[in-house]
């Protein structure tokens, strides 16, 4: 399959991209192109115009304060994997990036592209949800912030308005005593996950989150497991996930629940590790 005809334009900035999106409803943003490229070739996506963000100024910024690091949406998975982007999550981002698809994909695919595409199995979608990160988006009306939990609305659906561009992700800086775990089930290396378990415990920051990803829709928080993690530790949280998973993934079959529960237990077990 070959892509249908489209126009191509390079945006000089996120604001310029937002202006093009506002003026042309057939326009679509191009990040690293690792998902959009095949979708174009399969003619599943047929934008009239591609707006390439590759050279847009400001999308590879790094800014922040004691509490957060704002990572520009244009950074590639490889830059995060390699530590070119400093890791506010004490190694979690680098570890997750290392497991995304294949290096060739990581070389081009971007943090913002992945989050805006919102493939339910994408690693960043689950990771940013678990870290309680905040999305920074720019549109005609200016810049606003959206919590990860409200950003991913479902499979391939986000809170981005038609004219909005994801410009950065504010990731909380985990404290020295923080622990995290991340486990995913893939049929083979580099495939999209069938189940993701993510756990973050940072008492100093008030973070205790146990999250199931690759659910077919948005990631889901396991409230009981998260509370158990906060109050009793990871073993207690792990003991409860099999019982809780059905209530947060009511439409999944027994095998999928078992797989999700296994990934959650394995993610939680990693909280024992000193990283």
């Amino acid at each position: 399959m070959k892509a249908a005809v489209f126009d191509y334009v390079r945006a000089g900035s996120a604001a310029e991209a937002a202006a093009i999106l506002a003026a042309d409803e057939g326009a679509k943003l191009l990040g690293g192109g690792q998902s959009l490229g095949p979708t174009l070739n399969l003619r599943l996506a047929r934008p009239g115009r591609l707006v390439d963000l590759k050279r847009a100024e400001g999308l590879r910024s790094l800014a922040g304060d004691d509490a957060h690091l704002a990572i520009g949406a244009g950074w590639t998975h490889a830059a995060i994997e390699d530590g070119v982007v400093p890791d506010p999550a004490r190694g979690m981002l680098a570890q997750v990036a290392h497991g995304i698809a294949y290096r060739a994909v990581r070389n081009r695919g971007t943090l913002g592209g992945s989050l805006a595409h919102a493939d339910p199995s994408a690693d960043w979608v689950a990771t940013m949800f678990a870290l309680n990160a905040t999305m920074v988006v720019t549109g005609r009306a200016g810049t606003r912030r959206v919590a990860a939990e409200g950003f991913t609305l479902g499979a391939f659906a986000t809170a981005l308005a038609e004219d909005e561009v994801l410009v950065a992700v504010e990731v909380p800086r985990l404290s020295a005593g923080a622990r995290w775990g991340y486990a995913k089930l893939c049929r083979k290396t580099g495939e999209f996950a069938k189940a993701i378990g993510a756990a973050v415990l940072d008492p100093a920051r008030g973070l205790a989150r146990v999250v199931a990803g690759a659910t077919g829709g948005a990631p889901v928080l396991l409230p009981a497991a998260s509370a158990a993690l906060r109050e009793q530790g990871w073993q207690a949280a792990a003991a409860g996930v099999a019982g809780e998973i059905g209530s947060v993934l009511p439409n999944s079959d027994a095998a999928a629940r078992a797989q999700h529960a296994a990934m959650l237990r394995r993610a939680l077990a990693q909280l024992d590790l000193t990283r």
Partner: peptide, 8 residues
């Protein structure tokens, strides 16, 4: 090796 939890 068969992982009886995941089926892998």
């Amino acid at each position: 090796a068969v992982d009886a939890e995941t089926g892998q």
